[in-house]
Each structure stands twice: as C-alpha cells, then as structure tokens.
C-alpha cells in the first residue's frame, strides 16, 4: 500500500535524524539533522490530514526556531579549557533513563487498546481551526498573543548590551569601586 509506504518513509525521516541530533558532537550538524526531523514531523502531520498544522510547523519551526538555534550555535563557542574529556559517566545514566522511558511508553502503547474504529475521511482543517480560534478558543488565542508579546520584550531585554554610560547608577558604583 502506497500510504503505508509513505508513512514508513516519513517515520524514518523523523526518527533517524533524531539520533543524529542527540549523538552528534558537532552542534551545527545536530541543528541540520533537527531540520530533517522537523520536516519529517511536518510530513506526519500532513499524513494525518492536519494540513494547517503541517504548514505551521514548516513556517514556525523550520523557518523560525531552527534559524534562531543555528544562529546561536554559530555565535557561541565553547572555550578550550571547558572541554574536558568525558567518559561514560554522562551517557550511562541518561541512556538508562531514556531506555526506561521508552520501555514504559511501549508498554502503555501496546497495552491501552484505544478504540480507533470508524475513521472519517480527512478533510481540510484550516476553516474549522479558524472558526474555533474565534469561538471556543478565543481566550487562549488572545492570551497566547500576550505571551508572545511578553516573550518578545523579554528576549530583547535579555540580549541588550548593558554599557555603564547608559546607566548612571551603575556608572557611579563602578567609579566608587575604582576609587576604593
């Protein structure tokens, strides 16, 4: 079946680069692998008939978040003295915990038995999502815009360069320190 084959390709596109994201020593490589993972996830959304979410994923994650992440990877550099040779002491607890989580999730997935019969055909969702945003989800929709504004202001405030001459109080303190 073609649809099943497409699902397995998309699943491979999602999961295999995710290993690379996690294990790569080079964070730029990890970032580009994350691109493939997010692309695969967008394909899975499209496979599930969630066309609006698939396009949102492409625009927000791949066009926005990933570019930000790659910028920050390129703007920061790990200094030489901060690169100690590490043995397995970080990998073993993390690996054990991740595998335990995977096992638990596998048990839940195989044991739950959700009723998935009577699947309706997939329909375009954009109009329905828009109507829901303006009716049932109006408060969260407005609230999330407030959160975005707060995040915008907060991020700008955090990365602002603080120079002493811009802040008279700070400058006075510095002068006192120099004098004493």
């Amino acid at each position: 079946m073609t649809a099943d084959l497409i699902f397995y390709l998309l699943a491979a596109l999602t999961v295999i680069p995710a290993f690379w994201v996690v294990l790569s020593k080079n964070l730029v490589h990890a970032g580009f692998a994350l691109l493939l993972t997010l692309l695969g996830a967008a394909g899975l959304y499209a496979w599930l008939g969630a066309d609006f979410i698939a396009v949102t994923q492409l625009m927000v994650y791949i066009g926005g978040v990933l570019v930000l992440v790659l910028f920050v990877v390129m703007m920061t550099r790990v200094p030489k003295h901060d690169k100690p040779v590490r043995g397995l002491d970080r990998y073993v607890p993390a690996g054990v915990f991740a595998l335990a989580t995977l096992g638990l999730l596998y048990k839940v997935i195989t044991g739950a038995g959700w009723d998935t019969t009577g699947l309706p055909p997939a329909e375009p969702t954009t109009a329905e999502i828009g109507a829901n945003f303006m009716t049932n989800y109006l408060f969260p929709f407005e609230y999330v815009s407030l959160v975005l504004l707060a995040a915008l202001i907060g991020a700008a405030l955090l990365i602002r360069e603080r120079r002493p001459e811009d802040e008279p109080e700070l400058k006075e303190e510095n002068d006192e320190e120099v004098a004493s």
């Binding site: 993390a94 690996g95 915990f97 995977l102």
Partner: peptide, 15 residues
C-alpha cells in the same frame, strides 16, 4: 514514532 522522539529528546537533555 513519538515515543522514540521523546526518549531521544530526554537523552539529549540529560547528556
């Protein structure tokens, strides 16, 4: 698929 992604993400956060 999502269980694999979650476990890998957890692994990355921890190591």
């Amino acid at each position: 698929v999502s269980a694999f992604l979650f476990s890998l993400g957890l692994f990355a956060v921890m190591h």
